[in-house]
Design a protein around this nucleic acid. Sequence first.
DNA 1: AGAACATGATTCCCGAAAGGTATCACTCGA
DNA 2: TCGAGTGATACCTTTCGGGAATCATGTTCT
Lengths: 296, 296
Amino acid sequence: MFSLDQLSAFVAVAEELHFGRAAERLNMTQPPLSRQVQKLERAVGARLLERDNRKVELTEAGQAFLVEARRLLALVETAGDLARRVDQGAAGTLRLGFTATSAIRTLGPLLRRMSEELPDVDVILHERVTPAQLDGLLRGELDLGLGRPPFDTDVLDSRVVYREPLCAVVPGNHRLAALGRPLSAGDFAGEQVISYSPTQARYFHELTVRFLAESHPRIEQRVQQILTVILLVAAGRGVALVPASARSLGVEGVAYCDLDLDGTGAGDPVELHAIWRRDATSPVLRRVLTMLPEHH
Amino acid sequence: MFSLDQLSAFVAVAEELHFGRAAERLNMTQPPLSRQVQKLERAVGARLLERDNRKVELTEAGQAFLVEARRLLALVETAGDLARRVDQGAAGTLRLGFTATSAIRTLGPLLRRMSEELPDVDVILHERVTPAQLDGLLRGELDLGLGRPPFDTDVLDSRVVYREPLCAVVPGNHRLAALGRPLSAGDFAGEQVISYSPTQARYFHELTVRFLAESHPRIEQRVQQILTVILLVAAGRGVALVPASARSLGVEGVAYCDLDLDGTGAGDPVELHAIWRRDATSPVLRRVLTMLPEHH
DNA sequence: AGAACATGATTCCCGAAAGGTATCACTCGA
DNA sequence: TCGAGTGATACCTTTCGGGAATCATGTTCT
C-alpha cells in the first residue's frame, strides 16, 4: 500500500514534470523524492512516469493514476472538515421537543437563529406535552426539550429560557372583562374555572390551583392544551388562567385580564425551561445551549 | 495531515469498538494502535472515540468521520487498479485508422475480439485512405492503422494481418465474364480499365499496372475507393482489378473473375498491414498487437 | 571534439517516527 | 477485596524517510 506522501510526491512531479522543481515545491530535496516515486510505482505495479536524463513525462497509466491521486488528496483535505464541524456542533442533528405553547414566543426565534448560525444542523421537531418530552429525553429519543417543571433534576439539567406573567382569559362579554383593573384571587369566587390535567399539564394545573386556592372556585375541566382552554373560554364554558403569551394566539371572543399577584411570590411566574440530559454528549446540543437566552 | 495507516487504525477500532481486538486484526499490538488513534484525533481536531477503561464508542464526529474514512480507503484500494489496467493495455483508448476495404474482412473480427478481451478499451475509428493514416500515425493522431504499403519503415513498424488474391471485376454481361477460366494479362487487351489514384491508392494502382503492364490497356479513371471502382464497373464504364474480399461487398450487376498469376510472383498478392509507430509507448497498442493475426 | 552544465539515480548517514514489551491506572464482577 | 479486563504510558528497538555527496548520462556551448 502506498502512502499519502507518495501521492503528493507523484502529483507534484506530474505537474512540474521535473524532479528538482517538484522537490522544491514539496520543501524537500530531490533524492528522497525520486525514491518516493519509485516506491509508489512499485506499490501500484505500473510505471507512472517515463523519465530519462533529459525529460520527465507521464505514461498513460500515470495519466490515469494522476486523476485518482488528485481526487484522493482532495478527499483527504476535506475529510476532517465534517468531523470537526460535527464536533463543534455546527453540523449534525438536533431532536427537539416542544410544547404547543412554547412555540408561541420561543421556538420561532430559536429555529430562526439556528438556521442562520448553524445552517448545517438538521432540527427534527417533536410537539409533545412535557411528560412525553421528559420520557423522550430519558429514552434518548430527544436531545433537547422545551417544557415546564417539574422534572428529575438528578438526570436532567435545564435552563429557564422564557418567563412571563400569568393572566386570566374570560369570555369577551364577561363581567370580569369590564373591571379594567388587575384581578385578584377573590374576583374568581363563584366562577366556573377551566383548569388543566394534573398529570399532563401539571405545571399550569398547580399555578392555577395555587393562585385560586383561597377563593374556592368550581374547577371542572381537565385539559392538556392551553389553546383548548382558551377555545373553551371562548365557548363560554368558564374562565381560565393562561400564560400571557397566549394573547397572541388570536382567539376571537375572549378578553385577557392581568392578575394582581400581590403576595403570591415574584411576578412572571410562568417559566419555560430548556431541558436536556446531564450526561448528553451531543456537540450540537452543547452548541445550541450556548445560543439559548437565559432568564434568571 | 493524517496518514492512511491512521485511517485504517481508526476504522478497525470503530468496527471492533475494542482496541485489543482491533490491534489483533491489524497485526500489531495495542499500544501503538492507541497512539495512532490519538494522533489521528489531533490531526482531525476532534475527538472521534469516547473511551474509558470499560468501553469504546464513537462520538458523533467519529460517526461522521468513519464514513469519510471508509470512502477514502475504498478509493485507495481501487486507485491503483485503473493505472495497472491501463499499463497492461486492458483499459484506455485506441485510435484506429482503417481503409474502407480493410473493414470487409479484418476490422469486424478485430473489433469483436477487442470488445470481448479488452472491454474497457475505447476504440475510436477513423476511416482514411492509407496515406492519410500514415500522416495521422506520424502526427500522433492515430495509434494503429490498417493500410497498404508502401510506408516509411524507419519510423513505422508493421505486420501483415491479411493476404488475399487479386481478382477482376467486370460487368455481368461482359465477354470476360463468360470465359469461365482464370484471366491472364493478355485477356485485358483493348479493354477499358478503371484504375486507382497513384497517390491515394498507390498500392492498388501499382498492382494493377504491374499485372497489366504488357497488355497496354486503356487506363482512364483514377479513383481512391475500391467500392467506387466496382460501382463504376457496374455502370459499364470498364473493368478493374480488386482484392478478392470485394466479392462480399454485394454489388449487383458485376461478375468477379479469378486471375492467372502464372509468373507474376506468389499468389495472394494483396497485403493488408497493421501499421504503427516504432516508438509508440501506448500499452493498449502493445496489447492489441498481441491479438492481431499474423500472416507471413 | 571537449568542457561545462543539467538531471535523475544511487549511496551513506542521521534523526524522527512507528512498533513491541512491560507496566500502570482504573473499572467491574465474583 | 481480589482478579480479570481495558486503555494509556514509559522505555527500548527497529524501521523508514530526508539530506549531502556523488554518479551516470545526455545536452549545449565554445
